[in-house]
Design a protein around this nucleic acid. Structure first.
Lengths: 144, 144
DNA sequence: ATCTTTGCAAACTTTTTGCACCAAT
DNA sequence: ATTGGTGCAAAAAGTTTGCAAAGAT
């Protein structure tokens, strides 16, 4: 929870103000130490207005403290940048598996080498099918 | 353009009807042979109602003929499933580079081996920074 | 005192849905 | 004749914004 204070200091250092909602949101974010949606956060801290949540998250993103990821078609999820990992999302059951970012470094290196492209790996999730759902529902067509 | 007819036949085979809008949309999709948004398609074929476009794309997706990808925060883009490639999207300039899917097979193999997860690589784009924007604006912070 | 943040309501963007009419089979 | 598709308008979902009041520095 010293983490939260460190982040709040960073807000202040950037000329921002540490308000009640912000302190609560930052704390919730640190405590969650996992992907949470804006709604999750709001619910976790006594329902501030969603616009407040989004604005706070924006501010934190500008500070480089949080990042957001699109797991699927719906809401985005936010997490602290130092918890850098990838998300494998099963399209069948919705299960989310976190995998270390290291798995992607070889791909990242290749994209950099061949295309000069530096990937930011964790902004979008990797969609597919988890182990359980592969055996269960083989309804997955392999289209021509 | 025999491609378009083949797809239309597939619609019919599935009990669907080949209407004017559908014929136009399928043709536009084949002609585009690249990522297009629902709006792009609508504009390309004389502005049918967007709901028609979405419904047609849904139908085509159920047939396994098209797939859609989220390139960024906004609209999704659609493409024929047989044009299987990945998209590298530059967050700075918006440029989209297509890369062969082969680059991802080693990653896919690893995810399958280690996590039993079978990735569907092209549903989300890979975000990052293209070669040009890496040199230009080094505003990219590397947060703690 | 100043400048930021809040809450609200309302706009916004993208996509979905209900419904009556129309068209392909 | 039947069943599926169309257009419209309106809703839905997620996020953003303008504004006046409240709060942090």
């Amino acid at each position: 929870m010293a983490d939260a204070e460190r982040i709040l200091d960073r807000i202040r250092a950037a000329g921002g103000r540490v308000t009640g909602p912000r302190r609560q949101l930052v704390t919730a974010l640190v405590d969650a130490d996992d992907h949470v949606t804006a709604e999750d956060l709001a619910a976790a801290v006594g329902e501030p207005h969603l616009s407040t949540v989004y604005r706070t998250l924006d501010a934190l993103e500008e500070l480089g403290v949080v990042d957001h990821v699109h797991l699927g078609h719906g809401r985005a999820v936010y997490h602290l940048t130092d918890a850098s990992h990838q998300h494998l999302v099963c399209e069948a059951c919705g299960d989310v598996t976190e995998v270390p970012e290291g798995l992607f470094t070889s791909l990242a290196r290749k994209l950099q080498a061949d295309y000069g492209f530096r990937m930011r790996p964790n902004h979008f999730a990797v969609l597919g099918r988890c182990a359980a759902c592969q055996s269960t529902q083989s309804t997955q067509s392999t289209p021509a």
